[in-house]
């Protein structure tokens, strides 16, 4: 009994250290980028493990991204997607990786697929449309992941809106993305207009005007130059909607 007890104490000490590490890990978990095992499985054993282990993560992510370009040039969809997603997984806070992976999947892959099936002349237009829509959906899923991991990056939201608009021809979905972009920390100046335009083109003209007007009066008017381009577009909308003069945005002193 006397000889066993130090072993028991030491083992309990190790178990206690293990149990305590759960608490300490919870405290610093936010500071370590989220890495999904699923994302990394396809490329494990190709140097990526090094990136998971700590340090060098940015460097390995960059190298992985460079390697993905080799597959991109070969039009190798599987290899390209796997490596691009790996770069995203290794450095999930980088807007660049998410945005460009979304672009490749959402725009390029559909063209590769059509060419693989014999080219634009051989694939029926409705099939082509289906392919474009399928890859656009996949691209949007990547953008959504990117938005989540980057804390709502407005650039990725704008890219998602453009993909929804161009490939899915879904102006309402695009407007929803642009609107989310206007609520981000750093908003590009054109996000308001893009949201209002897509709502307008989706047939929600009155809603588009009301929303754009609220944004202009609440935020854009306070800009250094008073956002004259946005006001010009609002005037166009007021004309189109035949808004009575007394209900229109009051004329600004600097307005032409």
């Amino acid at each position: 009994m006397h000889r066993v007890s130090p072993w028991v104490v030491a083992s309990l000490l190790l178990l206690g250290a293990g149990a305590y590490s759960e608490t300490s890990w919870k405290g610093v978990r936010q500071a370590v980028p989220e890495i999904s095992r699923k994302d990394l499985e396809p490329t494990l054993g190709q140097g990526v493990l090094l990136g998971i282990l700590g340090g060098l993560r940015t460097v390995v992510a960059d190298a992985t991204w460079l390697r993905s370009y080799v597959f991109w040039e070969r039009r190798d969809r599987a290899g390209c997607e796997a490596l691009m997603k790996t770069a995203c997984a290794l450095d999930p806070r980088s807007r660049f990786f998410w945005e460009n992976t979304g672009y490749a999947v959402g725009y390029d892959f559909a063209h590769w697929e059509i060419r693989r099936r014999g080219g634009y002349a051989k694939v029926a237009p409705d099939i082509q449309e289906g392919i474009f829509r399928r890859y656009a959906q996949l691209g949007l899923a990547i953008f959504e992941d990117g938005v989540e991991h980057t804390g709502g990056n407005s650039g990725i939201l704008i890219s998602a809106g453009q993909l929804a608009e161009i490939k899915l021809k879904d102006n309402l979905l695009a407007a929803a993305y642009y609107r989310r972009a206007t609520q981000a920390k750093t908003v590009p100046w054109f996000a308001y207009f893009m949201c209002a335009r897509t709502m307008w083109e989706a047939g929600q003209k009155k809603e588009a005007y009301e929303w754009y007007r609220t944004q202009w009066l609440g935020k854009l008017k306070k800009d250094e130059d008073g956002a004259p381009d946005d006001l010009e577009r609002l005037r166009f909308m007021e004309d189109e909607l035949k808004v009575p003069v007394q209900l229109r945005i009051p004329r600004q002193t600097w307005e032409k």
């Binding site: 340090g55 992510a61 807007r95 660049f96």
Partner: peptide, 22 residues
């Protein structure tokens, strides 16, 4: 120049983190 879309200091710092780790 090999870096994509990170802040420059992050890229520089990551090399040292990697060196210390590896």
């Amino acid at each position: 120049f090999m870096d994509f879309g990170h802040s420059e200091l992050k890229f520089v710092a990551d090399f040292a983190f990697g060196g210390m780790f590896l």
